[in-house]
Design a protein around this nucleic acid. Structure first.
Lengths: 348, 348
DNA sequence: TGCCGGGGCTAATACGTATTAGCATCTATG
DNA sequence: CATAGATGCTAATACGTATTAGCCCCGGCA
């Protein structure tokens, strides 16, 4: 066993080429400013030695000396890969990787962040965020306190998904759920629905709020537009509730809930959309087998990933102007689960 | 726009606590050697200031000064996330993330590596491998030249999947395809099959070689054991070939090929396994819809991911002894596609 | 009083690169 | 022939942390 060979440094190259370390650095960075001049022969000599030795600059030292790393952090509030969240994070990561590759950045997944109460935390004993030039934040819910702290630190970051202000506005690339939901509500009203129910999951996440707000804003001309909470695994209770209310259409926040609702209806001999229309408000986040083509919309997750990297790089190098907030449109999907409320209803 | 606040450094902490930078470093690293003594009051004072400021050591400077980073590199020879390879890389990543979290390491995805001829390359102008303490290598095929170079550099790495020697033995965590295939061949022979065909994809990848070798080694008592290459999209031609040869069982390397073969057989009025048995030699690497429960084996991808991180951390800190090579057993799956060759055959 | 020893801390340095001020040397100009 | 300006390079320093040699002070002992 020979001792591991010491790293080749610029000093070594310099010695071999008979120049100073500074010259090596200048050649390496291809500096051709008016301020800095290197004779072509010298440059070639240095480059030749570099090629011979296969020297590569130590990125760590480089980062310490200059300001940037070309590393983009990715902080996922839930583990990035495990199966439960698989279909949630994957499309984002796909877009993120694609754009990172384009701009020549590496991606650092902060897997070292300790899990407290089932979620990761950015800020703790040994916060390693500074390893990256900036960071992307992914997660269904992101604690405002952490965003607040990031703002205070002046650390460059971009949230994937809209986030409320937290000690100052939060830069994000989100999906325009409000508009998408409103469009679907309008379609339902146009088709004659008058009693609408929003079947939600929670009240806290911004993504949830945005959908609800779109629902409320567009449903003004409805006879009744109410909101209920889906209890996981209690599709039958939800269905009872809808029937009792006389609702003809349900706007279901969670895809799996919509699937469960549809099959509960079918089991009961009801047809969709004949007896009940069901609209989904987002893609499945976990694998749910279904043959039904639900009416709803597609979240542009991949594009969100791409653009979040784009925005972040702008924030990092300061080329992005003021606050960066983008909402991307969702693509409406015309499925087969939004019909007309009742055959008897007059529809022109 | 206020200027971005300068990073808080140990020097700042030192000033606030009225001590030297060295003392801060010592306190921070909890050094309690006999060589180094810090008075409890001083220690507390420093810790208090650290807590107040929320100071965190810059990992980059840390790495430059000491030896480690707690960053594990992940180099994928194909993009890690895009849909084509999705089901190939994902299980590995799942295991990798899990174990990295356990040992408190972050993961660096080398997305910046330039793509040449449709594949990424480690070694190029600005090789950034040294950002990480060590690196995991993923990919169906890995150029021997790159492994050779890694060995020469003494850079700690572990390949996920067995790799042939490349200028010295290659550390890896792989799956024992040879044994798994051999077991399936033995089962087929036991059930009376005498004419076997291996339907392969290529000859170069180690994973392919291992399977073929397992096939050949176990099929010695067969009347005929031959190998053919599957032409993508030409399942019918492959089927013709099998029938002409009189093969009663096909060992199919690629899952999608097996699916195509089965449906080609069904279209032709043949039954599986009645007229032809089909054995698959690995999990799907791309989403292929099928209801068939194929007989074959499962690759322990998740576990490979976990153990590759385990091995790598050992290599990095030098606690791992000599060469690290592990082959993990594959789990045999008893599906419904391996039957007996012919009803007329006597079987006891 | 003088010396020794040890506890508690700091000064100095290393890690490898990027950047900048400025030193030689040479050419052109008056 | 002195001077100004261009050219080509280097010395010095900064980045933030870890490590080590060693300084200072104080108490104990002869």
């Amino acid at each position: 066993m020979t001792a591991p060979p010491r790293r080749v440094t610029q000093r070594d190259i310099a010695r071999m080429a008979g120049v100073s370390q500074a010259t090596v650095s200048l050649v390496l960075n291809n500096r051709t400013d008016a301020e800095v001049r290197i004779a072509p022969e010298t440059r070639d000599r240095v480059l030749r030695v570099i090629a011979e030795t296969g020297y590569a600059a130590d990125p760590v030292a480089r980062r310490l000396a200059s300001r940037f790393n070309r590393i983009i952090g990715v902080f996922t509030y839930e583990p990035a890969f495990p199966s439960g969240s698989r279909d949630f994070f994957h499309p984002f990561l796909l877009g993120i990787e694609e754009y990172a590759e384009r701009v020549g950045c590496d991606l650092l997944l902060f897997t070292s962040a300790p899990v407290v109460d089932g979620r990761r935390r950015i800020f703790h004993q040994d916060n390693r965020l500074r390893l990256a030039d900036g960071c992307l934040l992914l997660g269904r819910e992101i604690p405002g306190a952490e965003l607040h702290r990031l703002n205070g630190d002046g650390y460059p970051y971009v949230a994937v998904g809209r986030r409320d202000d937290a000690g100052g506005p939060v830069p994000y690339v989100g999906a325009d759920y409000g508009t998408a939901v409103a469009r679907l509500v309008e379609t339902a009203l146009r088709r004659g629905h008058r009693r609408l129910t929003y079947v939600g999951m929670g009240m806290t996440a911004e993504s949830s709020q945005d959908r609800r707000q779109g629902f409320v804003a567009a449903a003004t001309t409805a006879e009744s537009a109410r909101q209920v909470s889906a209890v996981p695994g209690a599709a039958d209770a939800t269905l009872d509730d809808l029937r009792a209310d006389g609702s003809t259409v349900a706007f279901v926040e969670d895809f799996a809930t919509a699937v469960a609702l549809e099959s509960a209806a079918r089991r009961r001999g009801l047809t969709v959309p004949g007896d009940l229309s069901i609209v989904t408000l987002g893609d499945p986040t976990a694998p749910v087998p279904t043959d039904i083509a639900f009416t709803g919309f597609r979240i542009p997750r991949e594009e969100m990933g791409r653009q979040s990297v784009e925005v972040l790089t702008g924030v990092i190098d300061g080329s992005a102007g003021g606050l960066q907030q983008r909402l991307l449109p969702c693509e409406l999907v015309e499925g087969s689960t939004l019909g007309t409320p009742d055959p008897a209803v007059d529809r022109r």
